[in-house]
Computed example of a mutant assay.
Amino acid sequence: MANTYKSIANNKQKMSKEERKMREEAEERIANQVKTPPKPTGTLKEAQKSLFDNYVKLNDNFSESDSTSLTALTRSVHRQNVLIERLEELDELDEKALELERRIHAYERSIVQQMTLLCIPLNQRLRMASDMAKTMIEEKKLEQMNEQQPQEVNPLLAILEATKHRK
């Protein structure tokens, strides 16, 4: 099952105006957080560094928390490209070519995995905004309940108080 979350703007679900407003506020807070740009973790070769920078430019939602996944993605893509170049030089029936193809497929799996990890952070941020909005709504409901209910007078305490004053 896909891990998808709809922004409140795209959500057609029935909800109160208050709930919709709180969810919009929470999403806005999450979306407008100060974002620090991602930085490579560890050292990268010059070609890898330019690839990393290109990926950062592609998505302005990437932040410093995405640095590890972006670095791993960059390394895997670079290594896969090097292997593909080497594979093009070899005869297709050569044993070395078969081994290179296996390694290329392993890098493909790694690339897909890292790309999936990079898609999660924004999704998690939106889900967190939804959870924050739900918490805010529950707090507001509790406040309203506390304001609406007058303090009930315990009849036994009222009798005790009345008898105290008589003495």
Rank of each mutant, 00 (worst) to 15 (best):
residue 30 I to A: 12
residue 111 I to S: 01
residue 103 R to G: 00
residue 55 Y to R: 13
residue 41 T to I: 15
residue 4 T to N: 09
residue 65 S to K: 14
residue 146 N to C: 06
residue 53 D to W: 03
residue 128 M to A: 08
residue 8 I to G: 00
residue 74 T to P: 05
residue 67 S to E: 06
residue 151 Q to G: 07
residue 8 I to F: 01
residue 15 M to T: 07
residue 132 M to Q: 09
residue 60 D to M: 06
residue 71 T to H: 07
residue 28 E to V: 00
residue 115 M to R: 13
residue 37 P to C: 01
residue 107 Y to H: 13
residue 4 T to C: 02
residue 62 F to Q: 03
residue 5 Y to P: 00
residue 142 L to D: 10
residue 157 L to K: 15
residue 147 E to H: 10
residue 69 S to A: 14
residue 96 K to M: 05
residue 15 M to C: 03
residue 152 E to I: 12
residue 111 I to V: 12
residue 8 I to Y: 03
residue 117 L to K: 13
residue 71 T to C: 08
residue 166 R to S: 11
residue 160 L to K: 14
residue 78 H to A: 12
residue 148 Q to F: 06
residue 114 Q to L: 00
residue 63 S to E: 10
residue 166 R to K: 15
residue 27 E to P: 01
residue 12 K to F: 06
residue 162 A to Q: 14
residue 161 E to R: 15
residue 167 K to F: 11
residue 58 L to V: 00
residue 134 K to L: 08
residue 153 V to S: 13
residue 1 M to D: 13
residue 106 A to E: 05
residue 100 L to N: 12
residue 106 A to C: 00
residue 28 E to K: 10
residue 161 E to C: 03
residue 89 E to Q: 11
residue 129 A to D: 01
residue 16 S to C: 02
residue 21 K to V: 01
residue 90 L to I: 01
residue 124 Q to D: 15
residue 66 D to R: 10
residue 126 L to D: 01
residue 36 T to V: 11
residue 7 S to P: 00
residue 41 T to Q: 14
residue 75 R to V: 15
residue 9 A to F: 13
residue 101 E to V: 02
residue 41 T to S: 11
residue 12 K to H: 10
residue 132 M to Y: 05
residue 97 A to C: 07
residue 47 A to Q: 07
residue 95 E to L: 05
residue 132 M to W: 05
residue 13 Q to M: 09
residue 29 R to I: 01
residue 126 L to K: 08
residue 135 T to V: 12
residue 116 T to Q: 11
residue 32 N to A: 06
residue 58 L to G: 10
residue 37 P to Y: 02
residue 121 P to D: 02
residue 149 Q to R: 15
residue 125 R to H: 07
residue 73 L to S: 05
residue 163 T to L: 13
residue 13 Q to E: 14
residue 126 L to A: 07
residue 132 M to E: 13
residue 102 R to G: 04
residue 105 H to Q: 10
residue 48 Q to L: 01
residue 101 E to T: 03
residue 105 H to L: 07
residue 93 L to S: 08
residue 105 H to F: 01
residue 82 V to A: 12
residue 28 E to S: 10
residue 96 K to Y: 01
residue 107 Y to N: 08
residue 123 N to A: 13
residue 66 D to G: 07
residue 156 L to I: 11
residue 107 Y to W: 01
residue 96 K to R: 09
residue 25 E to H: 07
residue 48 Q to S: 04
residue 160 L to G: 10
residue 47 A to V: 05
residue 81 N to M: 10
residue 34 V to Y: 09
residue 25 E to P: 01
residue 158 A to G: 02
residue 98 L to E: 08
residue 72 A to L: 12
residue 35 K to W: 02
residue 121 P to E: 02
residue 25 E to M: 13
residue 46 E to M: 06
residue 77 V to Q: 13
residue 142 L to W: 03
residue 119 C to R: 11
residue 2 A to W: 05
residue 71 T to Y: 06
residue 116 T to I: 03
residue 103 R to M: 03
residue 38 P to M: 05
residue 39 K to T: 15
residue 115 M to A: 11
residue 167 K to R: 14
residue 33 Q to K: 15
residue 58 L to C: 04
